[in-house]
Design a protein around this nucleic acid. Structure first.
Lengths: 327, 327
DNA sequence: GTGAAAGCGCTAACAG
DNA sequence: CTGTTAGCGCTTTCAC
């Protein structure tokens, strides 16, 4: 079938171990034999079989990446920078979608374990996850991204969500805008919770009363943003300013406003979390919070490599990346 | 380190092969021993080592997926459905970005070969690719997606680009609109070429003269759409209707129009290829062509599995999926 | 500086 | 139905 070290060895008239040493850049090999072996490798078009190597070395140079859904610009932005950063170190990524489903997430984790990946990076499907503890106990390097999980002590890369929304609300208040509607995400996600917290905290700090009825919750998806905006606009005294906690709900909300432009009793201005490619042209624009998407991925990649190479530290590292207010 | 078949065998007081048979659902194993082995597997928390299995079976159940860039909603839509479809058959995907760079693409292919993937699905970086021939000669199952490559005979999943843009232009002409500007992609991509061909063919068929100066070319990215729109709007007689050949250039073009709304001498209506999540709310809306993104992925996945399982057919299969005109 | 031999964890004849 | 044996392609002591 395919050409192996043995074939190369025979062709170069050396032993298999010598070929192996050449492949692995072992310094104590003479220039001469090295050249000869290289020659044979080229002639025979030898390609190393990493499966066999992995079996021996217990390293696959593969990292698993699990995220709630693939066709999601935010997650894929992260995946992209993870892939790039890991690629620099000879690692590749196996991508899995969990469908925002804890059961499937666990399934994927098992799959990746069986594939013997060297580590797993995951954007958790929810705040629940005893399976992560099992994973850690098994010794698998693990990095959580974007969200935390209850009762799990693990290394993680997050964004400073609280201060993110806080700064946006603070800015609006500074502009004299006090009545600010809010569209939040699923409160089982730490990111959603934290963004909500930043909103509440800013209002409190500036002594702005909190109005329950102008606070709505969706699930970070387009459709829920649409509905939340609809219910806000259906209020007798609908808010003129609204803060939306992620990109996709922002899109849904804008969609509602565009489709119902005629029926609106007043103008609306939207501020929002996330600054994706299209955020700036969605219109209705107030301020927005940019997440350092690329940085998130790079940090996650570096963190997992560090764990793989140096072992888990005693206390888990939590990297919190700053957000930027775009006015 | 980790528990192996041998450990399970010892614990269940059977031989390693029996354990292996249980794992692989070999029918000729007695219910009783099967149960006992399963028990031991559970107790010892045995997890199969697929690396070792792969070494033996020459199957990794991994498929490589190479695309020009990861954070791209279109590519990732395809990746997502590939992942899902392959997942149903026990396969996972290793994702690689080629950075729209043929050299890196080749590098990635070699990486995937060394990882012994069972097949490779690629959205080519350009129309150039002798490396694909080498790959095919090596016996690696290969499926091209979205674009073809010169002089390469390979199975592929494509979209009917020509008829896609033809039908849009035809529709506009039917509405009495004859002067239609065009923003195309990099003509080294077959998809860009075909969309342009559809435009030209429709104009010819309806005896509409072709005006070179209202035809611009970008590179399928946001920025180039912005620039192309700018140069169209800078014309003395800028077109009122414009057809744009993909989503990202559409975004860029809209961005230009929004930013320069005041300076425009007339209204503009945009028709475009692609119907992504946000296409419908970008405004300036004429008609658009929907690509069946999910279907593309599903077909690619099925095709690669078919090649893996039944071998390459004598003549390559080219699946051409229909597009839909959304009015 | 190089070779011989053992073995990673699994599967697959071949026996029985 | 189950065990024995060999070996996938590589790395890695241990000799020399």
């Amino acid at each position: 079938m395919s050409v192996t070290v043995k074939d190369v060895a025979r062709h170069a008239e050396v032993s298999a171990s010598t070929v192996s040493r050449v492949i692995n850049d072992d310094p104590r090999i003479s220039e001469k034999t090295k050249r000869r072996v290289m020659e044979s490798i080229k002639i025979l078009r030898y390609k190393i079989n990493n499966i066999a190597r992995s079996l021996k070395t217990n390293r696959t140079h593969s990292i698993g990446f699990i995220c709630p859904e693939l066709p999601n610009a935010f997650f894929m932005g992260i995946a992209g920078s993870i892939e790039e950063e890991l690629g620099k170190h000879g690692y590749s990524i196996i991508i899995c979608g969990s469908n925002e489903n804890v059961v499937k997430e666990e399934e994927r984790i098992n799959l990746l374990r069986e594939k013997c990946v060297d580590g797993i990076i995951v954007i958790p499907a929810s705040d629940e996850g005893k399976h992560f503890n099992q994973l850690k106990e098994s010794g698998m390097p693990l990095v959580l991204v974007d969200r935390l999980v209850n009762n799990i002590v693990a290394d993680a890369v997050l964004v400073d969500n609280v201060n993110g929304s806080y700064s946006a609300i603070e800015y609006l208040i500074g502009k004299g805008i006090k009545r600010i509607g809010f569209i939040g995400g699923d409160m089982r996600l730490t990111s959603a919770k934290e963004r909500y917290e930043g909103y509440i905290r800013a209002l409190n700090d500036y002594c702005v009363p909190i109005e329950e009825q102008i606070i709505k919750f969706g699930d970070f998806h387009v459709e829920s943003g649409y509905k939340a905006m609809a219910s806000l606009m259906a209020l007798r005294e609908s808010p003129h300013n609204i803060f939306i906690s992620n990109y996709f709900m922002h899109v849904g909300a804008v969609k509602y406003l565009i489709e119902n432009a005629g029926a609106l009793s007043h103008e609306v201005s939207i501020s929002n979390f996330d600054d994706m490619e299209l955020s700036s042209i969605l219109g209705f624009s107030g301020v927005r919070i940019r997440q350092p998407v690329g940085e998130i991925g790079i940090n996650a990649a570096r963190l997992i490599l560090q764990i793989i190479n140096k072992g888990v530290g005693d206390s888990p590292q939590i990297v919190r990346l700053k957000t930027f207010l775009i006015t």
